[in-house]
Structure formats: C-alpha cells, structure tokens
Design a protein around this nucleic acid. Structure first.
Lengths: 342, 342
DNA sequence: CTGTTAGCGCCTTCAG
DNA sequence: CTGAAGGCGCTAACAG
C-alpha cells in the first residue's frame, strides 16, 4: 500500500506560483479572474489530474453533491427499478447516491435518515414505511435544509414533495372496465394492512363496484398479510363458492397473483378461460409466468426519474434562496393486458 | 427552510467548560481520559444530540465510513441480490454505501471509480465489465490506499481480492451428471462474448463432454449476444435437427432459458418430457415459470456478504498497517432441480 | 489526565 | 484582478 497522493489546490498553486485562492477562483470561474490565468490554471489542473476533494468542499459549503435514498428492504424488484430511474438522472447531474435501508423497524428508519443527514447529502428520497410515533426527526432534517421527498405514500402532516402512483385510479378504472365488459363477480386479494398501498388498491376495487351498483361481497375480499397466505385464502373461498361464481380475481400485486395462479393450476382451473386473473405493479416476473400475467402497470423507473427531478429542483431553489412550492406528482397506473385476462 | 444547526464539538466543549480536544477524546474513548469526564461528556453529547460530522472526520482521517459499489447496469436481478448481501453486512458495521454504475462504456467505468475515490470511500466493490486499454487507474486507486475488490471476474494483471462464483465447476459437474444419467445430446446456448462468465459456463459444458468422451457438435453451441436472439438461434437448430436429437438444453442464464422455454412451447415441445432445460443463476424468475426452471444456483446474496467481509478485513489490516494477503474467494454453484429437467 | 496548537483541503471575506 | 488570512468540524501531535 503505497499511499500515493492526490494533487491539491495548494500543489497547483505552488506549481504555478500563484496563491491558492486565485487558483480556486480560476477553477470555479469566478468573474474577476482574467481569462488568461483561468486558462493557464485549468490547463495545469488537467495536467496534474487535479480533482477537488468533495469532503473539503462539503465541509465548507455544506453541500456534497450526494443524495440519499432509503428503501424499506431489498425484497421487491420495484425498488430496484425505481433506483434505476434515480441513478439515471442523478448520475447525469453529477450526484452520487448513498443508499440505506430501513430494515424492519421504525428506529432503523430514523437512524438511516439521520446518518444521511450527517453526511450532508443534498437531499433524501425515502420510501417511508413505518408509522412513527414521533415523526419530528423528519421535520428536523428539513429544517437543516435537506429536502425530503417521499415516495409512494403521503403524510398529511408533512409538507414536502411527493411522488406516488395513483393506485386507486388504476384499480378503479380497470375494475370498472371489466364490469362494463360483463364481469360481475370480482374477487380481491388484499395486501398487508401495514402497507398503505394495499389500502388504495382495495379502495379502487370497492369504489368501482359501488359506482356500478354491485354490492361488495365480503367473502370476495381475501386478506393476506403476505403472499404465502394467498393459496390458503383462495382455497377457503373455493370451499364456499365454485369457480363459476367468479369472473375475475384482482390482486394486491403480481406476486400475490402468481400464487393465485399456482393454486388455480393445481385445481385445474384454466386462466383466463375459467377465470381471469389480474396482478398489480407490472413486475418483470409478470412476463415470465404462463399465461403471462395481465397487470396494472406501475411505472417504477419513471417514478424514480420524476422524484429525482423534483428533488433536484427543490435543492436548486433552496440554494438560490428562492421559495419553493411543494408538489405531489401522481403518476398514472394503467391496465396492461397480457394473457391472464379476457 | 429554517436552517437549524447541529451541535458540534465546540458547542459541547463550551457548554461543559472543557477543551474541544478533551471532549473529542472522551467521545472516542481515549485511554487517558478519566472515566468521570468521559461519562459527563457522553451524557451531555446525548442530551445535545451531538452527531460527529463524518465529513470533517473524513477530511482529517482520510476514512469516511463509506464504501463504494460499482455495477455495470441495473438490468439483472443478480446485482440487486448481491447488493442486498453487501448492504446487510455494511450496514451492520456502520458503513454507508455509495452506488455507481458504469453505464455502457469503459470511460464511465473509470469515471465512477475516480468519483468514489475522490469521496474517500474506505473501499470499492466493483463488477468490472469492460476491457480497459489502460487499467492503470485501478492501480492508482489501490495506491491511494483504497482497497479494491473485484466481483465475478478475475484480472490476472491486478493483485487484489476477488469474489467469483465457480461457474465452470457448476456447469461442468451438472453436465457430467446428466451425461451419467444417460443424456448424450446436449445443447448449449452461449452468452455474449463480452461477458467473461459466458466463457466459463461454455467451458464447463465443453469439458464435461470431452471428459466423458462425447464429441462436441459445433451445431449444438448456439451463440447469442442477447436473450432476444435465443429463439431464432433455437429455431435454426430445429431446422437441421429434430427434438428427438436433443436430450438437454443448457443455457447461459435463466433469461436465456426462459426464451428457450417460450419457443419450445410455441413448437408444442414439452419440457421436460421431450427435452430437459437448464438455466443458470437461479434468478428469482426461475421459480415463476412453468415448468419451474431447473438451474444452477449462483448464491448472489452470499457473494455480496463474502465480498463485504473480505473488503472490511483488508481495510482493517491496512488501517493497522499489518500486511495483507489477498484472497480469491470462489463460491460454489450447484445444480438446483426444479421441474424443467428430468 | 487535560489544554494548546496546527492542519486536513477548500472557499470566502477582506484588503490591496 | 489577485494575495493574505480565517475557518468549516474534527483529530493528533506536542506540551504541560
């Protein structure tokens, strides 16, 4: 380990026989530096392969050209796809991305936020996933001047930028369309109570039925905390009803739908001939099942891109001292027909 | 934006009427500080919610409690799974993870490395994916004292830690076993020339045949730069041969296998009754196909964990000035029978 | 055991 | 237009 050193501003200054501050200004295109010296300095910097030290810059300017991203877990592909979108624009703008996970507790979530804040990230994109008794730590972070952008879930109490997918609308419209096409008996396999999105998807389903004057049959709402409960839930349903009683099964997400599909296959029920099946999210896996899963597209990557732009915009306005108007960006979700629906 | 301030060492020192350095030492458990003052300082720190500024620490100590991870792209799930493993141990050890992608050029790859180095990350885990005319930038990074760990591919020229999966062995053993079970006519759908892993997987296939005294039929090696070429490749093969001529199709990865599966279905060829099909990697998708894909397991998450430990170990030894012996950790890959093979 | 001092690399007043 | 000096927050000699 030879510890070679990187050239610093001082090195440049010495080599060129100027003061550090002049060199610094030249590199930063300060208006009051002659073009000649600028050119000279820049040429030398190039030659000596000078790279400013972001740590020192950050210490001074309280701005590190980094942003933080906090996920709940690494379990669904959805997060990865969002990350891809974030990376795409942030990389373009010269920002580094620091990732963190909230693991499985509110405490860790808070910790992750504070860690990022202590690294003086320029902003944080977070999939907040716990209900905090005391969410003041989030406000604290905002007060430190670090913009917070919330993904996928809205907190009335906190004024900030939001990027959420309009799960309600996607489900509502899709179910409505199916009803128009003649479906009457529609099942919904509902996701975990802990996840806010499961609520809006359920709502979309319920409202569509109501609006079309179809009574919601409580038996037709199957609660599953986890995809592993889907099969037994569906089995129970099929004890009381036959598949002829059901036209369409809608699901909290694609993984749930896949479990449903497996059970239906086991029971020799053909999809979509005997019953239609609908997922949610458009996880890549949905193109790998057979039949290929019809689903409601949730544009993950686009959400990442959207979030990045919003965040950068807020950071920019903050820097300039302009005041900033928070936005909530609802990205559309829409029905994507493949093979599991008629 | 109210810009509340964080408490600093100086704040603490003032509040408690001691010198900054005493406070610093107390917090860092310096041996020559009385337990009484330590306790007092720590209590105050707690109360004032003091968090050290990692930027300042980093500037001083040249160590930022961060590590960098560089992926080629965000395309395969494999990377996400590895990342999960990395995150798990790094988070545990209090490290933040900065991610970067190499995008699609050697230049970007180099850039990403240098960016991370300028952030003074404690180490870098990289999936190097381009052949660089001049790989000296990698050596430079090592010379700066930043440990580099290469994933998934070995560079003879560079002395470093490596974590690779033993693709050759997994493929070799699996194909050998199939031959023992009576398979003779085995096809291999080969991956992109640009990817080193495609070579070792092919090798495993070829060597197994040779060792068992089976001549390698060049027609049976289908070259596909991308999974989108799989179907046409296979179609071509099936013009010259019938499915009775083939016992088993091995593939560069699970995505390739899935394409193959689709084509076989289109042709009404039943898997595994008419022909067996084998993927590689054990991507989550392989449990979602039907039949469920038999594959060769590449323990992605474990590789991430392994890499993290190796890297941390090197960082630790470096810090202590002990000399360090580089290691190459070969993680085993092995046959995972599901439904697509007999 | 604790205080003093210097400096990591950079930017930014304040003077020329 | 450029130089000198101070300081961001922290640590690490060097002195007591």
């Amino acid at each position: 380990m030879k510890k070679s050193r990187k050239s610093t501003l001082t090195d440049l200054a010495k080599a060129i026989g100027m003061n550090v501050s002049t060199v610094s200004r030249a590199l930063n295109d300060h208006p009051k530096i002659s073009n000649k010296t600028k050119a000279k300095v820049k040429a030398l910097a190039e030659k000596m392969d000078y790279k400013p030290n972001p740590l020192a810059q950050g210490l001074k300017k309280q701005d590190t050209k980094t942003i933080g991203v906090i996920f709940p877990t690494f379990d669904t592909n959805f997060f990865f796809r969002v990350l891809k979108g974030i990376e795409k624009v942030m990389h373009d703008k010269g920002y580094q991305i620091i990732i963190s996970t909230a693991g499985n507790s509110a405490a860790q979530e808070k910790e992750a936020c504070q860690a990022l804040s202590s690294y003086h990230v320029g902003g944080i994109i977070i999939f907040l996933s716990y209900d905090h008794e005391d969410p003041s730590f989030l406000i604290d972070i905002q007060d430190e001047g670090i913009p917070l952008l919330f993904m996928d879930r809205i907190y009335e109490e906190i004024d900030a930028n939001y990027v959420v997918s309009d799960d309600f609308k996607g489900m509502f419209e899709t179910v409505s369309d199916f009803i128009d096409k003649g479906c009457k008996n529609i099942v919904h396999i509902k996701g975990s109570e802990e996840v806010s999105t499961s609520f809006s998807r359920l709502q979309g389903y319920q409202e569509a039925l109501k609006e079309k004057g179809i009574e919601v049959n409580p038996d037709f709402i199957i609660k599953c905390e986890h995809e592993s409960e889907v099969k037994s839930g569906l089995r129970n349903l099929l004890r009381k009803y036959t598949i002829e009683d059901i036209d369409l099964i809608t699901c909290f997400n694609d993984y749930y739908a896949f479990q449903a599909l497996e059970l239906l296959k086991e029971k020799n029920i053909s999809v979509p001939d005997d019953v239609s099946l609908l997922g949610f999210a458009n996880d890549p896996l949905s193109t790998y099942t057979s039949p290929k899963l019809s689903t409601i597209n949730q544009p993950a990557e686009h959400m990442g891109v959207q979030a990045s732009y919003l965040l950068l915009d807020e950071m920019d306005k903050n820097r300039k001292g302009e005041n900033y108007q928070y936005q909530t960006s609802m990205v559309n979700t829409f029905y994507l027909k493949r093979e599991s629906t008629k």
